[in-house]
Simulated scan of single mutants.
Amino acid sequence: MAHAYIGDKDAYLKRLRRIEGQIRGLQRMVEQEEYCIDILTQVSAATKALQSVALGLLDEHLAHCVVDAAREGGPEAETKVREASEAIARLVRS
């Protein structure tokens, strides 16, 4: 079974590589003892970028995996809804 995000896989990978670059930039900022507020600003930007990826993946999961399972019914539908609820709870806590 293909995952819902496969159609946007290249876009997700591009965004994650960009985030990876942001994290490396944060490491350099700490190594170079940059001003703490500037580092915190960049941490916030990286966090927002990761949240954006997470929300996109969640949207794909709900629109495809959960909807498909709900159409089929049975225990799989309940499992997919529970997984989505748990993922949302984790995102809200972070």
Rank of each mutant, 00 (worst) to 15 (best):
V67G: 04
A46L: 09
G7M: 07
V66P: 06
S44M: 13
Y12N: 06
H61K: 00
Y12G: 00
D59K: 12
A63Q: 14
L13P: 00
T47A: 12
V67N: 02
L62P: 09
T79A: 11
C36M: 05
H61R: 01
G7V: 02
L50G: 06
H64Y: 02
R24Y: 02
Q22M: 15
A63M: 13
A4P: 10
Q51F: 07
T79D: 12
T41P: 04
D8H: 05
E72V: 14
H61E: 11
R93M: 12
G25W: 14
I88S: 03
G56M: 10
T47W: 01
L50F: 13
G56Q: 13
E33D: 08
V30Q: 06
S85K: 13
G25D: 15
Y5P: 04
E86Q: 10
E76Y: 02
R93L: 12
R28I: 08
E86R: 08
K80E: 07
G74Q: 09
D10G: 01
E86K: 07
I37H: 04
L55H: 09
I6Y: 14
G73W: 07
A89D: 09
G56I: 03
L91K: 06
I37A: 00
A84H: 01
S44K: 12
E60Y: 01
L58F: 11
A4I: 08
V30A: 09
G56C: 10
R93V: 04
A11R: 13
V67M: 04
S85R: 13
E83H: 07
Q42D: 05
K48L: 12
I19F: 06
P75R: 11
E31L: 03
M29Y: 09
V81W: 08
A63K: 14
A89R: 12
A54L: 14
R90H: 08
R24N: 04
E86P: 02
R71C: 01
A84D: 02
R28S: 13
V30F: 09
G7W: 10
A87G: 14
D59S: 14
V81Y: 10
I23Q: 09
C36A: 08
V92G: 03
V43T: 03
E86F: 11
D38F: 08
H64N: 10
L16C: 06
Q27D: 15
E31G: 07
I6M: 13
K48S: 11
H61P: 08
R71N: 00
V81D: 00
L57T: 03
M29G: 01
R71S: 02
E83W: 05
L50I: 04
H3V: 15
I19E: 01
I23K: 03
R17C: 10
E76C: 00
R71W: 05
G25A: 14
